[in-house]
């Protein structure tokens, strides 16, 4: 009884220790603001952060990961996208901050993905210690391959969103710029004629 429960505990602890937490968030970062997220991470768990600025300004953001003892694990300034993998040295609260403090007027859209620990195993799968059959192994392989595909797809989706947003921006800018320039041409034309006429008019003028 005692041994059984001990084994159970150890097993649960193991499962618990490797319990995966993965969260993907896309959020708006207002101008000159800072957004922080906190995550409890167990010691010796590997974690990875991936982020990308989807739109706004120069597509850059300041990123910082801070450990429980306020030690800085990762710090980058004005990054467009990056990923960072680290292993937690201590158990505690890790802080991930995205800062837009250098930008006074452009608000941004930021995507981030925080993965902690390996993937949660399917219930029942991997509980028994028997060797996997060939079918199980291939299923496992397909699963990880599909996971990779989904990852790439996400990456591609974000890139596409970035490109699309920029194109929409460009379209609008071309529109306004053309209206502005047409107006400017008309103004310049009339001004030119007026000034030229002024040169040759009989009345004394300031241009002599």
């Amino acid at each position: 009884m005692f041994v059984k429960s001990l084994i159970f505990t150890v097993f649960i602890l193991l499962i618990d220790g490797i319990f995966s937490k993965s969260v993907e968030l896309t959020f708006e970062l207002p101008d000159s603001a800072e957004e922080c997220f906190y995550q409890d991470i167990e010691k010796d768990t590997s974690a990875s952060l991936e982020y990308q600025v989807i739109t706004g300004g120069q597509y850059d953001v300041d990123v910082k990961i801070e450990g429980p003892n306020k030690q800085i694990i990762y710090q980058q300034q004005k990054m467009q996208y990056d990923s960072h993998q680290f292993t937690a040295q201590y158990t505690g609260v890790y802080k991930v901050c995205f800062s837009n403090e250098f930008s006074t007027f452009s608000h941004k859209l930021v995507y981030m993905e925080l993965n902690v620990g390996p993937e949660t195993p399917l219930p029942g799968v991997g509980d028994h210690a028997t060797v996997l059959t060939q079918l199980e192994t291939s299923a496992e392989e397909i699963h990880s391959a599909l996971n990779r595909i989904i990852d790439h797809q996400t990456h591609h989706r974000l890139r596409e969103a970035q490109g699309r947003k920029r194109a929409e921006d460009l379209n609008e800018r071309v529109f306004w710029w053309s209206i502005g320039e047409t107006l400017a041409i008309f103004c310049v034309t009339f001004a030119q004629v007026m000034i030229l006429k002024n040169f040759f008019s009989d009345r004394p003028t300031i241009y002599k």
């Binding site: 159970f8 505990t9 649960i12 602890l13 618990d16 319990f19 937490k21 969260v23 968030l25 997220f37 906190y38 995550q39 409890d40 925080l114 902690v116």
Partner: peptide, 13 residues
């Protein structure tokens, strides 16, 4: 372990 599970199941905040 039960306590740990409850504690752990909340991720990001």
């Amino acid at each position: 372990p039960l306590l740990l599970i409850i504690d752990v199941s909340w991720g990001l905040y």
